[in-house]
Design a protein around this nucleic acid. Structure first.
Lengths: 115, 115, 115, 115
DNA sequence: GTGGTCTAGACCACA
DNA sequence: GTGGTCTAGACCACA
């Protein structure tokens, strides 16, 4: 269900992180839901288990998922944070880009029209 | 006049590409204006000539500059394209991100308020 | 399997580009086939890895090969284009040269006879 | 009357050589006709006199023109050779390219049709 | 002086 | 192991 772009400059493990957080934000992955095991996920995606492991580690560091050693990997209980962080980051990006456009001589009204 | 971020994930040569295109878009660099020679620019930035060369190659490929062997490197005659390409790309990025926000359940009005 | 001419005006990296595209056109290299790694190829040819890298970059730009970081370098899926491009370019060159000959007062019949 | 391509890989001096030989072959420049002086020609083309000098030297080496020290530079008396050499070279180039096309699996008949 | 090519490497992230 | 970036520099043709 995750499509990877091997040409992209974004590393594979990071693409996985992004996609999983997107699914969490969208409610496709729900709180406390179990994620596939590293090996299984790696098989499905046709990639190296180390890559999935790295993605899971990053997701845990961010608090998006929880790894329980012998039980498996689960979406965190407190999911609201994930979604809100995504929103904040996205809003901030848009702000930066609008600033860029203004520097290029385009007024806010023009930008809104174009959107 | 260009500041480089050596910590950034964006490679140095690409930072140069971005900065020069930004200067062109902003009108700081004008059509047919001569750019510093590879060696000179490398000295100024404190980097290796090959890195500047790589940036110039990419800029030429994009049509932003014109390299004339033994004469030097010049901003292209047709500069409008550079600025317009930047604008289009930026607008497209913003559109994608707004779509993303809408998927996360935020209405356009809310987005505009936040901006 | 590639022989390089160090005396030639055509740079080494371009000779590599030409030879690989020739092999693709001839069907010697097949779609999705893996090419030697940069280092390996450099060793085989007795040249510097950077030179092979430059050739691969150009080939990728032309769509003849696909470079996937950490995985390797592969002949593109869509190979037909490579061969057709070669043919078109060659036909066009011949046309130009025939025109040139006609300007020099040689009729088409004479040209065909000579060929 | 000569247009130079500064982007081309063919050096400027060689472009001049080619163009002048073309003019000679076409009869635009006639036997014993005087060519512009190095300085004058350089001015007209907007290039460095050394470049014109180099072109004239090459043309003289090939026997296409004759430099008479204090008098000036003249198209050679025996012009036939220039034209014939051009023709031979061009025919040879076409032969090579047809060979290339045949290797790509295109028959002579197909090539003739396309031309 | 200018860009073009190439060598010989080092160091890096990623898989 | 794979490609990506960068350094430090040499040598070249050309203008």
């Amino acid at each position: 269900m995750i499509t990877l772009d091997y040409q992209s400059r974004t590393p594979i493990y990071e693409q996985i992180v992004n996609e999983i957080e997107r699914y969490i934000s969208l409610g496709i992955l729900k709180a406390e839901e179990q994620l596939p095991s590293i090996r299984e996920f790696a098989m499905t995606l046709g990639i190296n288990p180390n890559t999935v492991k790295k993605a899971y580690e990053e997701l845990e560091r961010r608090g998006s998922i929880t790894v329980i050693s012998t039980k498996g990997t689960f979406v965190s209980k407190n999911i609201g944070g994930v979604s809100q962080r995504k929103i904040k980051e996205t809003i901030e990006k848009i702000r930066d880009e609008i600033r860029e456009l203004e520097k290029l001589g385009i007024s806010k009204e023009e930008i809104i029209k174009k959107l």
